[in-house]
Nucleic acid binder design. Structure first.
Lengths: 121, 121
DNA sequence: GGATCTTAGTTCCCTTTGGGTACTACGATG
DNA sequence: CATCGTAGTACCCAAAGGGAACTAAGATCC
């Protein structure tokens, strides 16, 4: 139960409901991109910074820490020579990727319907 | 073509691609909630403010204006007695609702897997 | 006729977040 | 001993978020 639509007690429209905070975490540009960038397996900090074009190290760190705190990604430090940190989706993170991937793909598939963004047509 | 995954030219991971801006518009707490609140038909400003618990009029106005600019919602003013403004999804807005509804529903359905948000268990 | 009500905002101010650039720590390597 | 690469942090500034109070326009009440 509670696997479709809204449960009896949780409601994203209620500001005090924890799932509102969850929505706020997921409905975020950098979260959506970071989780997507990890879909294909573990990635290092530098690889993520390169992939998430335009992200500053500070914001990337903050985003990853938030995702880590909530159990969506695992952070593994390899205390090797020039330090090596890997980020990886947890099972929960993998599950969360599905709706976010749909959102990213919708944006790509429908961008042509947004003349104001594509510089008009 | 370009109806699934990424097209050849558009990429949300590219900061300068317009679909990145589109993702930024959609991957936003208030956008996701506002569009969802309009799924069942036109709503007035006050109704949206009540439904989007915790939103300030300023932020709601800004959110709706942004969605209107991009053609996701229509704004209709009825210059009646105590003024009456209705917001309504466009066809484009209705299409955008699908992935956002999935995201909202995922948050509700999986909130129990986030101990840090639900106050631990 | 004047006070009051409603609706849809706007304005002001402050706090939070986002963002860019530069810097640090670490030890291997030259 | 200086240099390099990695993964950040520190600092500072700009933009966005957020709350409370205020505005406008006219109908309605008394």
């Amino acid at each position: 139960m509670t696997t479709d639509s809204c449960s009896r007690q949780h409601d994203v429209y209620d500001a005090s409901c924890p799932c509102r905070q969850l929505l706020d975490l997921l409905a975020n540009k950098w979260s959506a991109l970071a989780l997507g960038a990890l879909e294909d397996g573990p990635r290092r900090f530098g690889a993520l910074r390169d992939r998430l074009d335009g992200v500053s190290p500070k914001v990337l760190t903050a985003t990853l820490r938030r995702l880590e705190e909530q159990g969506l990604v695992d952070r593994t430090v390899y205390p090797s020579v020039p330090l090596h940190v890997e980020y990886e989706l947890t099972a929960l993170g993998q599950d969360a990727c599905a709706p976010l991937a749909a959102l990213r793909q919708w944006a790509v598939a429908n961008i042509d319907r947004f003349p104001a963004l594509t510089g008009a047509a």
